[in-house]
């Protein structure tokens, strides 16, 4: 008996599929890079500063919170960096440094850590931070004010402002190709639509996000925008404009698909996505804010546990 080696004894299953959280977050960061790199080329050093500060601060906030809460360190899972990156992608390049520090603190501490860290967050952390800043310091997120220092060969009016004030005539200032190539004013990483679509398709094909959520969100935006447009073609811009402007694409591929704050079954995912898209256009067209994505997804996040109640009948259950 004594000459036996010590074996590892644990519970079945003894094999694993090989998926991991690190893999998932690092690939999501990778998928966001096309949009980020084009954003950096467009907005220059200030954008670089915002992104670096946001990612760095997010990691530090999570590190500090883990120390305070006496929990094992989790920064190596990459989620803090991803939250920081997504938050920076939503900001205009000229945002003051203290807002980035504060915003990343809101995202990590209020958005994630006080709920027990990853998996416990009821809202998408970067969205919660951007929502609080939108309400508290709206002028810093007003792209028309923030980005006046830049001069490009395209209209620097925020597309959604133009659409709000001038209707579909305002929207005609941008061709679809311009919008796809990022020739529009907006957040650092949310203007280059083509890059966001590429990243999103990559994440869907690799199975890191659910196509049900992303596509139904885009579908919800398109269908609702189409209905408005058909009702009053002069006042409301068309579906393509709504899909390619503002936070729609980053919302569909990177924010609404946040695991913990979205449902997991098929029908709830579809309802969640369509509902988010519907609310987005509703807020844009007849609400107070220019872009409805932030509040639409946060509202759907709150409804996500309710959607979870729609569940398939489990094996052997008679109800």
């Amino acid at each position: 008996m004594s000459n036996n080696p010590k074996f590892i004894v644990s519970h079945a299953p003894f094999v694993h599929y090989g998926s991991s959280l690190q893999n998932k977050t690092y690939h999501t960061i990778f998928a966001a890079l096309p949009a980020v790199i084009v954003g950096l080329l467009m907005w220059g050093v200030p954008a670089m500063a915002v992104i670096a500060l946001s990612v760095g601060c997010s990691i530090i906030w999570e590190y500090i919170m883990n120390l305070i809460l006496k929990r094992p360190q989790t920064v190596d899972d990459g989620n803090a960096a991803l939250v920081g990156l997504l938050f920076a992608m939503l900001l205009p390049a000229t945002v003051p440094w203290w807002l980035v520090v504060l915003g990343s603190a809101i995202a990590i501490i209020i958005g994630k850590m006080i709920f027990g860290g990853i998996g416990g967050n009821p809202f998408s952390p970067p969205l919660l931070a951007i929502a609080i800043i939108m309400v508290s310091w709206p002028h810093y997120l007003d792209f028309n004010v923030a980005l006046t220092g830049y001069d490009f060969d395209f209209s620097m009016v925020y597309p959604l402002t133009a659409a709000r004030s001038l209707g579909s005539t305002g929207a005609e200032a941008w061709s679809t190709l311009d919008l796809l190539l990022g020739k529009q004013s907006g957040g650092i990483g949310s203007t280059f639509s083509l890059g966001l679509i590429l990243g999103g398709v990559y994440l869907i094909l690799r199975g890191f996000i659910r196509w049900e959520i992303a596509l139904s969100f885009i579908g919800g935006v398109a269908i609702t925008a189409l209905m408005f447009n058909m009702a009053d073609p002069v006042r409301f811009a068309g579906p393509v404009f709504h899909v390619l402007t503002g936070y729609t694409l980053i919302g569909a591929f990177f924010l609404a698909t946040d695991d913990a704050s979205s449902p997991v079954s098929f029908l709830p995912m579809i309802l969640y996505g369509i509902g988010g898209g519907f609310l987005t256009v509703l807020i844009r067209n007849i609400g107070t804010y220019y872009d409805g994505v932030v509040f639409a997804i946060i509202l759907m996040n709150t409804a996500s546990p309710l959607f979870g109640k729609i569940k398939p009948k489990a094996f052997g259950r008679v109800e």
Partner: peptide
């Protein structure tokens, strides 16, 4: 040392602690 011996298959087996 630190290997694993399993009674049964990889999904539902039970780990054993001794070669005896």
């Amino acid at each position: 040392e630190r290997d694993r011996i399993i009674n049964g298959g990889p999904m539902t087996g039970t780990a054993l602690f001794s070669l005896d």
